[in-house]
């Protein structure tokens, strides 16, 4: 089904990534390579470290051992590198995290104006274009509190895209939404995928995984248990743990 748009360029590279919360070893020797244009879906039971892993990529979480390289920039203590990586990595959160004191448009132009020093006119034109793409240009002057959850999440996607990121991280983007709003958000994500964006999605939307993913990764207990292209992953899971998980979420 999925026709890979992946190029040879390495976009995100995790090498022997390890992370602890105090004594607790949350990420154990994670190795992952994501090429430009690749779409990765990450699933697994709660507490398996999948969110923590993608949050390490833009340094919302600090890792203690191993290397993270994003678009040839190594992620280390150097604040300049962290800022450079954050400029190229967009992130969409489970709870949207829009800025409630700013209008939708102001939410979208804030980072381009202050981080990229883009002129306001240009930033607004670009924001309107992206709001058009997520199909809510008419809400531009409203406040986030006046929008539905699905609309808020689409604004959050547009807000990330306004920075022209090379990689998009999605941290359970549909799990806080009412069922009838999930589709409108997934549609936007699918469209983004067909345009060739490099994406890492933590999600349990298996339909989405089958449609767009180049690879599905299954995590449990802080490690990558299984990694395969979606057809094989769903029809022929290798590990017992993966089989159990799939049987549990696909039952209904």
């Amino acid at each position: 089904m999925s026709h890979s748009q992946a190029t040879d360029k390495m976009m995100v590279e995790l090498r022997n990534l390890n992370k602890w919360y105090g004594e607790f070893h949350v990420l154990k020797n994670i190795n992952l390579e994501v090429k430009q244009g690749e779409k990765i879906v990450i699933c697994g039971p709660s507490g398996s470290g999948k969110s923590t892993m993608i949050r390490c990529i833009n340094h919302l979480e600090e890792h203690q051992k191993g290397d993270i390289i994003v678009n040839d920039i190594p992620l280390n203590e150097d604040i300049k590198n962290i800022e450079a990586i954050r400029k190229e990595v967009g992130m969409v959160f489970q709870h949207f995290n829009l800025f409630p004191h700013l209008t939708v448009l102001e939410n979208c132009v804030l980072a381009p104006i202050w981080v990229k020093k883009m002129p306001r006119k240009e930033a607004e034109a670009q924001a309107m274009e992206l709001l058009e793409r997520v199909k809510i240009p008419d809400q531009a002057l409203k406040y986030p509190g006046q929008l539905s959850g699905g609309q808020q999440q689409r604004v959050a996607i547009a807000r990330s895209l306004c920075m022209n990121p090379d990689v998009m991280l999605f941290d359970e983007p549909t799990s806080a939404l009412d069922p009838e709003m999930i589709k409108e958000v997934l549609d936007v994500m699918i469209e983004l995928a067909t345009e060739g964006m490099t994406m890492l999605c933590v999600t349990h939307e298996m339909g989405f995984a089958k449609t767009v993913a180049d690879r599905v990764i299954f995590m449990d207990g802080g490690q990558i248990v299984e990694e395969n292209e979606p057809h094989e992953f769903f029809n022929n899971p290798q590990h017992e743990r993966t089989q159990l998980f799939l049987s549990q979420i696909l039952q209904h």
Binding site: H59, R86, A111, W114, S160, M163
Partner: peptide, 23 residues
């Protein structure tokens, strides 16, 4: 202020003072 507001500002690449003053 919810932690998510800090994280969203960080993820967008805002610096510390920008995050504090604007968000």
């Amino acid at each position: 202020i919810p932690k998510g507001q800090y994280e969203a500002a960080d993820a967008l690449g805002l610096g510390y003072w920008q995050k504090m003053i604007l968000i």
